[in-house]
Amino acid sequence: MRTINMRTALLEALNEEMERDETTLVFGEDVGKFGGINKVTEGLYEKYGNRVFDTPIAEPTIVAAAVGMAITGNARPVPELQFGDFAGIAFDEIFNKMGKWRFMHGGQMEMPITLRLPVGIAGGAGPEHSQSPQALFMHGPGLQIVIPSTPYDAKGLLKTAIRDNNAVLFFEHKLLYDMKGEVPEEEYLIPFGKADIKREGSDVTVIATALQVHTALEAAEELAADGTEVEVVDPRTLAPLDMETILSSVRKTGRVLIVHEESKTGGSGAEIAAQIQEEALFDLAAPIRRIGSPDVPIAQNIYLEQFYRPSKEQIVQAVNELMEY
């Protein structure tokens, strides 16, 4: 099978969906002629003209306008915020309008928006351009949350997101844009709410998202050499969350480690851990462990950055500790 990077996979998804439905609109800061600061929308403006447009630097207006377009039923907006951190600027529009407009108006309108949000620690971007704010939105009803870890997942999930008639927050880890993976030529979709077992194992369940899926897989290789078999589960969507697959793995291994780049307190792992203990406490042989980034703002210093990102060593150590129970 051919191998492409995640940026190309996302661009293919955008291209195919714009081709498929001519009401699909792509807009945001520098997404037009410039192709987006991460080059995910490169070439779309040349191909689709006014269906791809640059907007002023105005995140609340970008998201609000997407809502106003979507509820007419005449457009399928796929806006981009340059950094996922900027969700903070547009918080009300995302949390209260995108998520709740349909419900609070009695279910009379649809909200086919896919808001793309590049996230993650990358390149010394500092405290307001490096965060992973996805868990904030797990608390907000009406929002579906996607966080892919591979080019294959990214493409299939983005296509599903764009076709969906409900609001989607699509988080893309910036360090994954250049990461390559197998992606078939032929079309496919990946449903929401279906976790993927990236590696099977019988001793410890490691639940990881985005870049951390890869760190967990590296740790699993190392641990396997010492005879510990780790199962790596990638939820792929945090809302809806596939607890069935997670619980089935937990019941098999009895040991759970949750790893994400989100800061630990109130991260998505907190919710996942809470749901596991509600359903499977007596299947556990050990306490549920979590690794997240420290609960302090992300320093600009690129040297310090590595101390925020969960490492292979941390995962190996945590798994070994779990195996002591």
Partner: peptide, 8 residues
């Protein structure tokens, strides 16, 4: 903000 999206 929402209204200009509708107009758009």
């Amino acid at each position: 903000g929402i209204g200009i999206g509708t107009a758009y």
